[in-house]
Computed example of a mutant assay.
Amino acid sequence: MSRVNQPDTLVTLLREIQRRLRVLEGTRHATAFAAAAAAPAPVQVFQPARPQDWPGTAAADWTPLVRLLTRPGSFVVVLEAVADGEGEVRVVVDGEPAETVAVTGEVSRHETEVTVSAELVVEARRTGAAGTVRVTAFAR
């Protein structure tokens, strides 16, 4: 802005234009940043790599071990499970069991395709005399 009672010069006009550009660019970047921050970003969660660190149960009844709240859509659920003795794991889609898989002493991998409206739960139970069933799950 020019001083009071003095005419604008090219230098003062250029400074005013530069100041206004800085304000506009700052507003544009702030708006873009706010929009990016408000957009739902996919959450990537690491799972434990060692089977002994996976969530597990020694109960003979179905026990929920991992849960995913999601948007409606189709997913492939990848289960990796191991048991000290014998056991089973299953995927429960919106409260309804989808598929049950037998688990033994070796780490096994199983994929199940599901259509979900809200919630995926992976449950496990021991079917042998003793031991623990451990599982980890991923949804793609």
Score class of each variant (00 low, 15 high):
residue 23 V to R: 13
residue 76 V to M: 01
residue 6 Q to R: 09
residue 74 S to T: 14
residue 58 A to Y: 02
residue 103 V to W: 04
residue 5 N to G: 05
residue 34 A to T: 10
residue 80 E to F: 11
residue 79 L to A: 01
residue 115 T to L: 06
residue 63 T to K: 09
residue 95 G to R: 07
residue 34 A to R: 11
residue 91 V to M: 06
residue 16 E to P: 04
residue 18 Q to N: 14
residue 12 T to Q: 03
residue 91 V to I: 11
residue 11 V to S: 12
residue 62 W to E: 03
residue 13 L to D: 12
residue 113 E to T: 13
residue 128 G to N: 04
residue 11 V to M: 08
residue 61 D to F: 12
residue 112 T to Q: 11
residue 17 I to A: 15
residue 116 V to G: 02
residue 2 S to P: 01
residue 73 G to V: 00
residue 70 T to V: 15
residue 97 P to H: 05
residue 45 V to F: 06
residue 71 R to I: 01
residue 121 V to R: 01
residue 93 V to I: 11
residue 30 A to E: 14
residue 17 I to W: 09
residue 106 E to D: 13
residue 121 V to A: 03
residue 65 L to I: 08
residue 34 A to L: 09
residue 98 A to F: 14
residue 129 A to W: 04
residue 102 A to M: 07
residue 47 Q to R: 15
residue 95 G to D: 08
residue 128 G to K: 04
residue 119 E to R: 13
residue 42 P to G: 05
residue 41 A to N: 02
residue 107 V to D: 02
residue 40 P to A: 05
residue 25 E to A: 07
residue 90 R to H: 07
residue 116 V to S: 02
residue 88 E to R: 08
residue 62 W to A: 03
residue 103 V to K: 00
residue 84 D to G: 12
residue 92 V to P: 08
residue 122 V to S: 04
residue 89 V to D: 01
residue 92 V to R: 05
residue 5 N to M: 05
residue 129 A to Y: 02
residue 102 A to H: 09
residue 92 V to N: 06
residue 88 E to V: 02
residue 86 E to Y: 08
residue 95 G to C: 07
residue 72 P to R: 06
residue 83 A to Q: 03
residue 124 A to D: 03
residue 8 D to F: 01
residue 111 E to S: 11
residue 72 P to L: 04
residue 78 V to P: 01
residue 116 V to L: 11
residue 51 P to A: 00
residue 121 V to E: 01
residue 116 V to W: 01
residue 104 T to F: 10
residue 7 P to R: 13
residue 12 T to N: 02
residue 41 A to P: 03
residue 44 Q to K: 13
residue 110 H to D: 13
residue 27 T to Q: 06
residue 85 G to P: 03
residue 104 T to I: 04
residue 27 T to V: 08
residue 2 S to L: 03
residue 88 E to N: 07
residue 106 E to I: 10
residue 67 R to W: 10
